[in-house]
Design a protein around this nucleic acid. Structure first.
Lengths: 224, 224
DNA sequence: TAGGATTTTTGACATATCTTAATGTATGGG
DNA sequence: CCCATACATTAAGATATGTCAAAAATCCTA
């Protein structure tokens, strides 16, 4: 699951989108200034960039041009000016798509998925996560324990992948619930606990999933 | 330079665009009815399709779906209804982009060039998909397992190709239904399940099709 | 175009998986 | 050391999925 960077000085929008994206298994990070945004781009690997046209420090168009010089990352521009010329200019700059504000989060997500589908023609991560005895292969959606495949249900696998992609990170139950497809996040249910319990059984004798009392869980594996 | 087909009953627009496109070295042909449009698509090779939503005979959305069943041609939808839901539906239908009327010819051209740029790379050269033991040849519409041809029915093959073109992608049953020819998507039927079941049998002993409970299926193969 | 062969769909039932409810167990504060 | 709270686990019920076999639809050949 590749990360997405938003560069926009509107903190309220950033919060809103971060939450909404989580529900759709998209990982959003936010920069409020162009300088911070560029710094992050250089530091981390992102799969897509969302760029506001109205920014402090510098114009979004210029920023787009600047980034395009150094990277092929897909860019979606957000613009308050709805005029045609602006939109065309955005596309000619090298942006992959634009969206006039205000917009529905849902439409942004659809456009993102559309672009990601096109750019990463195959949605393969090519990631093989190796934790000593345990190996998680994200291409094949399978986990091996001492070379032998563990029989995981789809939810169990998704949970394991979530953990394995960010070992050491503490996940709350809400985060886990939102990330798993086909879960009806009611008020509060024990589903996550039981899922964790089942996964622990199948991962025995390794004790990789730690409980963080009062918070959630954490995967204590060390990548080899 | 590949040809572009416009399906729209507005003859004035057709003339206007034909002229404008010529200035940009784009070759535009026009159909004024869906039936004529489909006939031309079958007859000739087009690089892109522009589709109006408001058409005689049938709805543009339905037409889009229909064409998408049989072809991967890039589609841009023109719509007079500017509402978000409509637009989203357009993209979810399998269209590659949309443009609300009225629009500037210049913007349409920019979008066309954008899409052609994107699609020209990925299309074509994916004729033989190689997954270790399994090889899918889209030219011959056949699949080989350890060098031996698997006897697949046409639906089984289509499903396999759909999967194989986007390994790792999770398909919902609806998506699968829409992609397969000759399936009348009723309210809900088990056809997809049974099709998957049959394909799994024939792909044995490889376990490439994973179930994503509550969502659909996913092809877990790694391209060699 | 009829009749047989193949393929797809439907309905029924088997199986797998998830959720809820209930009960047992660990943990930390007083 | 005990109690309150949070977590773990079990079992049973609810859904979703797998697959068989027969009916319906389609395709093919004569």
């Amino acid at each position: 699951m590749s990360k997405i960077l938003l560069i926009d000085d509107d903190e309220r929008l950033a919060d809103l989108l971060t939450q909404y994206f989580e529900q759709h298994s998209l990982n959003l990070e936010c920069s409020f200034t162009p300088s911070d945004g560029i710094a992050r781009l250089n530091q981390d690997e992102f799969g897509l960039l969302i760029l506001d046209v109205m920014l402090p420090e510098m114009d979004g168009f210029d920023l787009c041009k600047l980034i395009r010089k150094e990277s092929d990352i897909p860019i979606i521009m957000l613009t308050a000016r709805g005029e045609v010329m602006d939109r065309v200019v955005g596309l000619e700059l090298g942006a992959d798509d634009y969206l006039p504000k205000p917009f529905e989060p849902r439409e942004l997500v659809v456009r993102i998925q559309n672009i990601l589908k096109r750019t990463s023609h195959t949605r393969q991560n090519n990631k093989i996560l190796n934790f000593d005895e345990l190996v998680v292969n994200t291409d094949l959606r399978q986990a091996l324990m001492s070379e032998i495949e563990i029989n995981l249900t789809s939810m169990e696998y998704q949970l394991l992948e979530l953990f394995a992609l960010q070992p050491g990170k503490i996940f709350t139950r809400d985060e886990i619930l939102n990330h798993l497809q086909g879960i009806e996040a009611d008020v509060y249910s024990r589903s996550v606990d039981i899922l964790v319990s089942r996964l622990r059984q199948k991962l025995k004798p390794m004790e990789l999933i730690k409980t963080i009392r009062g918070t959630g869980y954490c995967f204590a594996g060390k990548i080899q």
